[in-house]
């Protein structure tokens, strides 16, 4: 893959016209329309709506389209239509896609940084004189935020009484948080196990890659299978943690900005873990049932493994900034 091969220019495969894009568009439009109307419908459940059905139908339609799209590209590759140059286009495409994902997470990490280092202290009166005695008297900032400014002024009614017109709901802090519980309770702390599971899976994914480079299919299948399994274990652990947070700790999306950032960051990460697991599972099935991939031709697996390592790195940052610091 080093650089471009100029000989490849003559055989660059420009596909014939294809219905894939239109089919994907139909799915996406159904998702956009269905999701927005379904979410609007949540607040007025008494009105009849078919938006939920359209959303699900759109998702299924989209999944089927993606399946045939990928099937098409795999078939073209097996038929030998893909020059080294075209393969390099796919490599570039995947790399920049992952970069866009990095920037998506950067938005949420940036929000977390801003809230923890600037907005939180300001709400408690830092920097701007004693403004908070007028706005949120009695609010003290700490992280994790266990008492919201609204609670500090006596809940929603207190907030309204103080003349704050803007009110978009009740925000009451959790009873417990999920941050570092001290060395003695380390072993009961789920995020630590999540970290171990995910870091191990990155390692096993790499071992699978080494196996593939050696053309050792047995080794590849074994370690890739283990990686998929670890991905599933992570999802289960994350589910257990969410259950604990919601049921035992009273921590939810509406627990103020700690619950907000906690669930949004770990939630989007968890969603990406599920996507990555599915991607690796597909590669696993391609290898075990169809015998795809060899030491020379392995882009589907490589792209999924890059994605997996990316998800792993995001977790390391999450562990650091959401749980430990």
């Amino acid at each position: 893959m080093a650089g471009q091969s100029n000989t490849g220019h003559e055989t660059y495969y420009v596909p014939e016209s294809s219905s894939l894009a239109i089919r994907a568009t139909i799915g996406l439009v159904m998702i956009v329309w269905g999701a927005s109307h379904y979410i609007d419908h949540l607040s007025k459940p008494e009105e009849p709506s078919n938006a939920g059905f359209i959303l699900v139908a759109g998702l299924v339609w989209f999944a089927i389209t993606l399946f045939s799209w990928f099937a098409t590209t795999i078939r073209e590759n097996i038929q030998g239509m893909n020059s080294a140059q075209l393969k390099h286009s796919y490599v570039i495409g995947m790399q920049w896609f992952i970069f866009s994902e990095v920037m998506f997470f950067a938005a949420f990490f940036g929000a977390l940084w801003y809230i923890r280092n600037l907005a939180g202290p300001w709400l408690a009166g830092a920097g701007a004189g004693d403004m908070n005695t007028l706005l949120w008297p009695g609010f003290e900032y700490s992280w994790p935020l266990m008492e919201t400014p609204q609670q500090a002024v006596g809940g929603v009614s207190g907030q309204m009484a103080a003349g704050h017109l803007a009110n978009n709901g009740a925000f009451s802090g959790p009873e417990h948080h999920l941050s570092f519980p001290g060395w003695s309770n380390m072993l009961h702390w789920l995020p630590l196990w999540n970290t171990i599971v995910l870091l191990t899976s990155s390692f096993t994914c790499h071992v699978a890659h080494v196996g593939l480079k050696e053309n050792n299919r047995k080794k590849f299948n074994l370690w890739l299978g283990i990686t998929v399994g670890l991905g599933l274990i992570f999802v289960v652990l994350q589910y257990m943690e969410y259950h604990e947070a919601l049921v035992e700790y009273g921590l939810s999306l509406s627990s103020g900005v700690y619950g907000t950032t906690f669930f949004m960051l770990t939630g989007f990460h968890g969603f990406h873990v599920i996507m990555g697991t599915v991607m690796l599972l597909v590669q696993f099935l391609r290898s075990t049932t169809k015998g795809h991939f060899n030491s020379e031709d392995q882009f589907g697996f490589e792209a999924s493994s890059w994605y997996w390592h990316f998800v792993d790195v995001v977790w390391v940052f999450l562990f650091l900034f959401v749980y430990i610091l």
Binding site: L123, N167, N168, F171
Partner: peptide
């Protein structure tokens, strides 16, 4: 708007 988070709501500690 729909799920009770407080990114942009000072009442919940956002901004």
């Amino acid at each position: 708007i729909h799920f009770g988070t407080s990114f942009f709501s000072a009442a919940g500690g956002g901004d």
